[in-house]
Design a protein around this nucleic acid. Sequence first.
DNA 1: CGTGTTCCTGACCATTTGGTCAAACATAAC
DNA 2: GTTATGTTTGACCAAATGGTCAGGAACACG
Lengths: 212, 212
Amino acid sequence: MKAERTKPRKPETRIQKRNHEAILEAALDVFSSRGFRGATVDQIAKAAGLSKPNLLYYFPSKEAMHTALLTGLLDSWLAPLRALDASGEPIEEILTYVRRKLEMSRQMPRESRLFANEILQGGPRLHGVLADDLKPLVDEKAKVIRAWVEAGRIAPVNPQHLIFSVWSLTQHYADFDIQVRTLLSDVEPDPFPEAERHLVTLFTRMLTPEAA
Amino acid sequence: MKAERTKPRKPETRIQKRNHEAILEAALDVFSSRGFRGATVDQIAKAAGLSKPNLLYYFPSKEAMHTALLTGLLDSWLAPLRALDASGEPIEEILTYVRRKLEMSRQMPRESRLFANEILQGGPRLHGVLADDLKPLVDEKAKVIRAWVEAGRIAPVNPQHLIFSVWSLTQHYADFDIQVRTLLSDVEPDPFPEAERHLVTLFTRMLTPEAA
DNA sequence: CGTGTTCCTGACCATTTGGTCAAACATAAC
DNA sequence: GTTATGTTTGACCAAATGGTCAGGAACACG
């Protein structure tokens, strides 16, 4: 319902760009670790090294910072799925997808938690994105996977639920990081190498067609 | 650090029990859908059909309601894993575990989201529980799984990460319910039947030993 | 019925929080 | 230097929120 006039129409000055980025970086930090409601503008301001009114000079509201983050990150967030190539070797394509998603959990846990926080709460600020951007992409890639199944190139599997499985398994290592590390504390200091081996094994066994 | 004297030492009156339960029920509703910080005592009071001061009569603080919920639910939350039986048939045991966890995602999504919300935010209110209660249980069951692997009764797998996989795959259908339903809106009105088929297939293929 | 205990509430309070604003400060252009 | 534009902040505000409290209502029991 709100106008999308967050960014000025004129080209950004250097100082604008710097502060804009500092604010979004700080906002990502705070929103991802406390949720939208749990984050305060003061916390973000402090993390960005700016004053609260100064934040409100660059963004009209706390809400605006949040949506700027979500929309700005969406593209890179969906990139790995977009890269799934219908003309590639099926199992290798999916394993690559899994590896890239797991790598994102390692490198961008804050982004993962930001989205998780949002969807957990019923995604009031994401309904549109889910239906308008994500759904078409998932439908398209589901079709690709279905074609692979029908061609006998991978074992039979429900395409949509396969995608859900990739998401849940990989994002788990970002979203539930504390739990994972606590439970592995005396086994592996860094869960990711073993996680990758585990997931590669899992999807390979799951998708390799019957030798029959 | 706080004393655990939430409950009075005297036996509860009928009215105490009723209100106590109504409050926790309402608190589960509100906490699970908005997170701790996002929930207000007023919202919980309204949902419970009581006045705000009345809630504070039964619980010393908002925080107390939250911890009462977490600790009260922990047992039933971990029951499925506890039920994993070392003397049972390995694959059937794990499939049963998966089915029970998925069933909990269907029947108790609020509880799932409550824990998810908590762990997502670094689990400040759960550190103790994770290390003291969950870790020993996971270690014990990991040992069971490792024994099955070494006996050749299931295919080689990292026990801890296998448990993580069960959690993430099953809880995903509760925690990300909105996303799942949105993406399946024109395919399946109820995601769970297909989810169960999918997960049974996944774990069967993953765990069935090589015919070699 | 009387009395002690439990239960409940309206009014109130202190703090936090998102957001505003006038004025000060900085910067670049002329 | 002057002027116009862009940037920053201290002071402030209204609303929301967790929590308190004195007293009233309901109940239990002799």
